[in-house]
Write a protein that binds this DNA or RNA. Structure first.
Length: 278
DNA sequence: ACGAGAACCTGTTTGC
DNA sequence: TGCAAACAGGTTCTCG
């Protein structure tokens, strides 16, 4: 569910609550996530002080003292929720971990569909971690250029929309922002990734960057599950040009086109305008 | 090696 | 109204 802008929003909310604070108690419910959580998860984290809260792709990367790193992935339905000191969180069967800090603030990881992940590793092992090692460039980083994206798409005989969701190509893009980026670049999601011209790739890079940056500014998008840890909603969903807008008028076509259509690619919904996107 | 599709889960919405 | 099917912001495995 959460893509890069939502995970970034969570990281920014989590940073002031966790950085410089110590885990005094960790309750790990023995629910099974898609990937097994380390047996000693709670024991290894308890007593650690958080140094930094960051993000890589759709992963939250939390560095603690002693070189311990906590990785959190929110999957499709994962949420981080805050509870003020002294207020016991109303536990749901979908709460997989509760982190209590020395400040008294409680942080809950809740994920009904259990596609999320919790893992620990040593900071020196982070670059080789199986979940992170094959991630592509950060779309908002200096290393993400048309040349880099072009090289990643080169030779790919899959639809460009499907390629953009491949985390080895770009880290952090998901189903919403993939559709939105292609709309903004005026490129059909059906085009084969390897067939894009250099000029098209050069349009796609700033389209991706601007969509993501605007979504972060808006605090992400709230559809069904996602909500900011503070309980606020993101509001970028009001700025979607195509996502979830099947049969509506294309915002770029001034009544001349046939509107936005929904198709399925790689088992996921894609929304686009066949008139504006070629 | 690559690409398509299924599988993994639960909750909510849609359609007959 | 009620039930079943479809669908949901992701990743990973298998099969051809």
């Amino acid at each position: 569910m959460p893509e890069l802008p939502e995970v970034e929003t969570v990281a920014r909310a989590l940073a002031p609550v966790w950085e410089g604070h110590r885990f005094t108690h960790i309750l790990r419910h023995p629910t099974r996530l898609r990937r097994p959580v380390p047996e000693d998860f709670a024991a290894r984290l308890t007593g650690r002080t958080v140094e930094t809260v960051g993000r890589r792709g759709k992963y939250l990367v939390i560095r603690g003292d002693g070189g311990l790193v906590l990785l959190i992935h929110l999957g499709m339905s994962g949420r981080i929720l805050f509870f003020p000191p002294g207020e016991a969180p109303p536990l749901s069967p979908h709460d997989h971990a509760v982190f209590t800090m020395n400040s008294g603030i409680g942080v809950v990881f809740r994920d009904p569909r259990r596609f999320g992940m919790l893992d620990l590793c040593r900071v020196e092992d982070l670059p080789q971690h199986p979940l992170l090692a094959s991630l592509g460039p950060e779309p908002l980083g200096q290393a993400f250029t048309p040349a880099v994206l072009g090289a990643a798409l080169c030779g790919k005989r899959t639809a460009v929309k499907v390629a953009l969701l491949d985390q080895r190509v770009i880290a952090g893009l998901g189903n919403i922002y993939g559709s939105e980026s292609l709309f903004r670049a005026g490129i059909s999601p059906l085009r084969l990734a390897g067939d894009l011209s250099a000029a098209e790739v050069a349009r796609l890079v700033p389209a991706i960057q601007s969509v993501l940056a605007e979504a972060i500014t808006a605090g992400g998008s709230t559809l069904k599950d996602y909500i900011r840890p503070t309980g606020e909603q993101g509001y970028f969903q009001h700025h979607f040009a195509v996502y979830g807008r099947a049969k509506e008028r294309c915002p770029g076509c001034n009544c001349t086109g046939n509107g936005i259509i929904r198709i399925v690619q790689g088992g996921r919904s894609t929304f686009y305008c066949a008139n504006k996107q070629r």
